[in-house]
Design a protein around this nucleic acid. Structure first.
Lengths: 252, 252
DNA sequence: CTTCAAAAACTGGTCAGACCAGTGGTCTCC
DNA sequence: GGAGACCACTGGTCTGACCAGTTTTTGAAG
């Protein structure tokens, strides 16, 4: 194995084992090179590897620092192999929405087919709560409504996959409602879409429900695309991890 | 921003957008350095960054290659929170197929829209290989064919999700072809479905491709359901882990 | 002609030393 | 005391050389 790899592993282990605390400064490249008896180029390659992995951050003129990713906070095991795709690639967000469009549609379809009395009750409850437009907690209510429908599909795989996708989104972008609702006319459109979806599911009309759900996601997706185009800084990457987790947990 | 960062970003983007296919070789460091007008050291640092985040793999004396963003690098065994759903619940297999039906359809749709010349070539190759019916290695060829189409969708999220689902299936049940092909008339039907799917994608007919893909998955699903009903012990859970991994890797 | 091993021409991995470019402290000089 | 020059750090880039695997070419032996 290449020396640079060995060094990057050693450093990563050192960091993960707590030998180097977050925010702590790493010795300078020249120091490391001397101390480890290798050239500076090798050190730089090793550091770039750790950088790519998000373990350290490097600032010109200052030095390299252990990234502040909370060491033990990975309760639900979250360094999805997909996650790295997002860093700096907002395009992936739309790939995500593309898939969601399909799956939310399917979920709505199945929910309209399979929802039990209890499901209908839960969906109705979530929908009613959504109508009392409390702009601040709106995001989680929105989440709750969609989740109720997805769960009514009685397909655990679908529930799991959609939940994963939603969690990924939360790491890269504020929930759609948070961005879109401020614009009054958009809010109204979304409310109308929710109502259509709701009624189709409750009425047991799979095709209508599917159509409403896909249209909804597509609308959100296109709205985001427009916002991005218009220069709005929609994407906020490296989002605070705990906040995202907390939100996700609350929505469940 | 540092030049090495810009380069790593550009390369990653190129890969994600499909300009460079998985397993494809990246130009040599010296070539890149010359072509981009920078020193080789910078190229190496950029490549190490991509290496750190698993986008490429580098082999001494051979070159650097785009990592299939699918790989067994993700030890699907331990942490997949879905995995426990399967224990004793063969029904989940059909939930899985239900979702796959939708997503394979979408993948085919997008592939028909977006496939590049290179994609078409890879798909054709996989399809041709599939026609030389070697019953034993048929499963992995089948996998390879579908994977080629999915990757041609140029939606990394879709690729990732479908691959996860497929891996899960491999843990609970023998691949569909292994079960279905022994019956000659079924084999013929599947071959015909593959051909329809193939032609629709190559011809650039999204709607037809989607229809063919969903019909194929649904057919397989229903065939399995029938087999199960007829008393065949279709489901074999806790399947040997290494075998599943090996299969999954080979399919790539 | 074919075979096969040596040699050449690739590939990435490492090294050395130089210089450029940000950062921050010190130490004048007003 | 404050402003600015200076200097000693830091990382960023370049050059050109050499080592170490891999593949291709080549050329002599059979």
């Amino acid at each position: 194995m290449a020396i640079s790899q060995e060094i990057s592993y050693r450093l990563e282990r050192l960091i993960l084992d707590g030998g180097l605390a977050p925010e702590q400064k790493i010795p300078s490249e020249r120091q490391l090179a001397t101390r480890l008896g290798v050239s500076r180029a090798v050190i730089r390659e090793a550091l770039h590897e750790l950088q790519g992995r998000g373990v350290i951050e490097t600032r010109h003129g200052k030095g390299s620092f252990v990234a502040s990713m909370v060491p033990g906070a990975n309760e639900l095991g979250e360094q999805s192999p997909l996650m790295h795709l997002f860093e700096g690639h907002p395009r992936t967000l739309f790939d995500l929405l593309e898939v969601r469009e399909q799956l939310e549609g399917q979920a709505a379809y199945l929910a309209a087919q399979r929802a039990t009395r209890l499901d209908r009750h839960r969906i109705t409850k979530a929908f009613r709560a959504l109508e009392d437009t409390d702009p601040l907690s709106n995001a989680r209510l929105d989440h709750g409504f969609h989740l109720a429908i997805v769960e009514a599909s009685h397909n655990p795989v679908l529930v799991h996959v959609l939940n994963s996708l939603k969690n990924m989104m939360l790491l890269t972008v504020q929930a759609s409602v948070a961005n879109l609702n401020p614009r009054e006319e958009m809010r109204k459109k979304i409310v109308r879409q929710h109502r259509q979806l709701y009624e189709a599911v409750i009425a047991g009309k799979p095709a209508s429900a599917q159509k409403a759900a896909t249209a909804h996601v597509r609308f959100v997706s296109e709205a985001m695309r427009d916002m991005e185009k218009d220069g709005g800084t929609l994407i906020r990457l490296p989002v605070n991890q705990e906040a995202a987790n907390e939100y996700s947990r609350a929505g469940t």
